[in-house]
C-alpha cells in the first residue's frame, strides 16, 4: 500500500491528493486540543527539512465529532494516528475508534515531551482497548530500534511504522540563532532515508510484523529500496510538500519497474496486490 506519512497531508483540504493513495493517515490526535509550537515551525536544511509543529490538532473530541465524519465521506481506508502523554491517553482514544482501517501509535514526536510510559506498556494498554490493527510508529533515535520492535510485538502490536523524524538543529546563517522558535525540530526528507532503511532492515530481521516504511521517499527507486529492506507498505511525507502529485508519479513509475532481484519481485507483487488506488 502507498500511504501518506502522518502530519504531511490534510485530506479534507486536498482530497485529490488523498485519492491517489491506498489509505489516508491522519495527523496525530491527542486527548486535548493542541495549538502546536510558536512559529517559525519549519526550516529547510540540506536535503531535508526540520519541523517543530508540536502536534497541532483539534483534540480527540472534536476529531471524533467533526473531522472523522468528514474524512469518512472520502471513502478511503483511514489510519488514525494517536498520541498522548501516558498509556491511558493512548488507550482511551483507541477505545473510542471504530470502523477504521488501522491505528498508528505515535511514540516518537521529537517536538513534544515524550510519554513517560514505555512503548510496550502503551501498546499493551491499547491492545486491551481495541481489536483494531495497531501499528507502532517508532523513532530511530533509540540506540536499538529492533529491541523496541521486539518489545512492541510481544505487547501485541500488529505492525510497525518506521520511522518518525530525528531531532535536529538549524541555524539562521545571518543571525546564527536557531531558525525554529522551539530551537530543535524533527528532520525529514531525503537526508533521513539511510537511517530509515537501516531501521526497516533491522526491525524486519527482528520481528515478523508488517512494516510501513517511510523517511525521505521521493522516487519509485526509493520505494523499491524500502521494499527490499523489508517494508510491506510505504508512506510519503515531505515529498508531498514539493509535489502533491508524487503518489501518482511514484505509482506509475513502480508499475513499470522490472524486478531482476528475487526478493524484490516477491515484494513488488505483494505491494501491487495490496494497492487499491
Amino acid at each position: 500500500m502507498l500511504l501518506n506519512a502522518s502530519g504531511c497531508l490534510d485530506a479534507l483540504i486536498a482530497p485529490d491528493v488523498a485519492r491517489q493513495l491506498d489509505g489516508f493517515v491522519t495527523k496525530t490526535i491527542t486527548p486535548l486540543p493542541r495549538e502546536g509550537n510558536a512559529p517559525p515551525r519549519i526550516a529547510e536544511t540540506a536535503y531535508g527539512m526540520l519541523n517543530a509543529i508540536g502536534l497541532a490538532n483539534p483534540g480527540r473530541e472534536r476529531f471524533l465529532a467533526d473531522t472523522l465524519p468528514q474524512l469518512r465521506e472520502l471513502a478511503l481506508p483511514l489510519w488514525i494516528s494517536v498520541g498522548g502523554f501516558c498509556a491511558a491517553d493512548y488507550a482511551e482514544t483507541c477505545a473510542r475508534l471504530h470502523d477504521v482501517e488501522a491505528i498508528e501509535l505515535n511514540f516518537s514526536c521529537p517536538n513534544v515531551d515524550e510519554a513517560a510510559d514505555s512503548a510496550a506498556e502503551i501498546v499493551a494498554a491499547c491492545r486491551a482497548a481495541t481489536p483494531l490493527p495497531l501499528y507502532a510508529k517508532l523513532s530511530a533515535a533509540h540506540p536499538d530500534v529492533a529491541e523496541v520492535a521486539r518489545a512492541v510485538a510481544t505487547a501485541g502490536a500488529d505492525g510497525l511504522s518506521l520511522i518518525n523524524t530525528l531531532r535536529g538543529l538549524a541555524l539562521d546563517p545571518r543571525t546564527l540563532k536557531p531558525t525554529l522558535a522551539r530551537g530543535t525540530g524533527g528532520l525529514s526528507g531525503p537526508s533521513l532515508k539511510p537511517v530509515a532503511l537501516a531501521a526497516v532492515h533491522a526491525c524486519h530481521a527482528a520481528t515478523d510484523l508488517p512494516i510501513v516504511g517511510m523517511g525521505g521517499i521521493t522516487t519509485a527507486q526509493d520505494v523499491v529500496e524500502f521494499l527490499v529492506c523489508g517494508a510491506q507498505h510505504v508512506a510519503l511525507g515531505t515529498v508531498l510538500f514539493a509535489d502533491p502529485d508524487a503518489p501518482k508519479r511514484i505509482r506509475d513509475a513502480l508499475g513499470v519497474v522490472q524486478p531482476d532481484d528475487r526478493r524484490l519481485s516477491a515484494r513488488l507483487l505483494e505491494f501491487r496486490a495490496n494497492a487499491v488506488a
Binding site: G7, C8, V17
Partner: peptide, 13 residues
C-alpha cells in the same frame, strides 16, 4: 514560512 502551500504541513501557522 510555507513548506507546502496547501494545508498539509501546518508550518504556516
Amino acid at each position: 514560512p510555507m513548506a507546502c502551500g496547501y494545508g498539509g504541513c501546518y508550518g504556516c501557522a
